[in-house]
């Protein structure tokens, strides 16, 4: 069952250099209880997509200017709808837990605020509920740490606090935007374990936004790859990994250490990330692509099923055959 459905989403940002289309016609679905990875470099539009779903695109610079987002049959772009679902149904965890937690409030109060503001809980009830959550996300000596401030916690513990806050009202969809990027390598795995454990317990859908394929390997049911504001490939992790249908995906796969296979040499993607202010015509990946031809310069490729692959595996490339045969 589809819980979240994004169709032709367009988000524009006004910058000092001109108007930038940060998300340019992105479409994807997230099923109930599913874990989906949204992969892409910085500037690919993955975080802005998440902000659009939450209805927290920074104003007045940014605005959603096209497409639709529906959550459980409700139109999230209609006035007031996202506001009513934020925190209760859809929750979000951000990249940097230090700047994402309010420095002047105690963490117990910040978690408890969810119950006080949304459920009208008393101070004491909220405190008890916050304590339960802190224990659940594995914060040691939780009853003592309830009254500490964010700057007194380590990075990993802060992210646990963020996760506790997000989980407070048992949302059905959790969006985690680079949840481990700002953390130590040793802590990253713990946070990912925590997220997947909680996801299984709650039966919620999880959207993991990351630039790091290694983070989602073994966790995500499905991956969605974004490049320059567009979805360029989508499919199960195994399909996409073993039979990349887009040159960007195959480049990305070649540039990370193999998940379980032999450790070959790492090959970086050539060229530089796209400049959103001056995107090339047709396919945005064209300048970095070895398969590019005239068609790629003229026609913007759309997502379509790859030859001899399952219908769930789609890529937006004019020459998927070349990519498929070259890689494997």
């Amino acid at each position: 069952m589809v819980l979240l459905s994004v169709r032709d989403l367009r988000v524009e940002f006004a910058t000092s250099g001109g108007v930038v289309t940060a998300v340019d016609g992105a479409s994807f679905d997230v099923g109930s209880g599913e874990t989906v990875a949204l992969l892409g470099e910085s500037g690919s539009g993955k975080s802005v997509t998440a902000q659009a779903v939450m209805g927290i695109v920074p104003k007045p610079a940014g605005r959603v200017c096209g497409g639709s987002i529906s959550y459980d049959g409700r139109d999230l772009l209609a006035p007031g709808v996202a506001k009513g679902l934020r925190g209760r149904e859809i929750a979000m965890v951000f990249q940097d837990p230090l700047s994402s937690l309010n420095p002047v409030f105690r963490v117990g109060a910040q978690i408890g605020e969810m119950f006080r503001r949304h459920r009208g809980a008393s101070r004491r009830e909220a405190r008890a509920a916050a304590l339960d959550l802190m224990k659940r996300v594995g914060i040691p000596a939780a009853s003592k740490r309830l009254d500490d401030y964010p700057h007194q916690f380590s990075g990993g513990m802060r992210q646990r606090v963020m996760i506790a806050m997000a989980l407070a009202l048992s949302p059905r969809l959790l969006i985690a935007d680079e949840p481990t990027t700002a953390l130590d390598v040793t802590v990253q795995a713990q946070i990912m374990d925590l997220l997947t454990r909680l996801q299984a317990e709650e039966g919620m859908s999880l959207v993991l936004i990351t630039h790091d394929l290694g983070v989602v390997a073994g966790v995500a049911d499905r991956v969605i790859l974004m490049y320059a504001g567009r979805v360029v490939e989508t499919g199960s992790l195994r399909e996409v990994y073993e039979h990349s249908g887009h040159p960007y995906t195959s480049g990305l796969m070649a540039s990370v250490p193999a998940v379980d296979g032999p450790r070959d040499r790492l090959v970086p993607i050539q060229g530089s990330p796209p400049d959103l202010l001056s995107l090339p015509s047709g396919c945005s990946f064209r300048p970095r692509c070895q398969y590019a031809d005239e068609q790629c310069a003229e026609v913007e490729p759309v997502l379509r099923q790859l030859p001899d692959r399952p219908s769930t595996h789609q890529a937006a490339c004019h020459h998927p055959e070349g990519v498929l045969t070259d890689v494997h």
């Binding site: 940002f13 910058t15 000092s16 930038v20 500037g43 920074p58 007045p60 610079a61």
Partner: peptide, 9 residues
């Protein structure tokens, strides 16, 4: 990436 338009104005 997102210096607001206001800065320009």
């Amino acid at each position: 990436m997102v210096a607001p338009v206001a800065a320009r104005r």
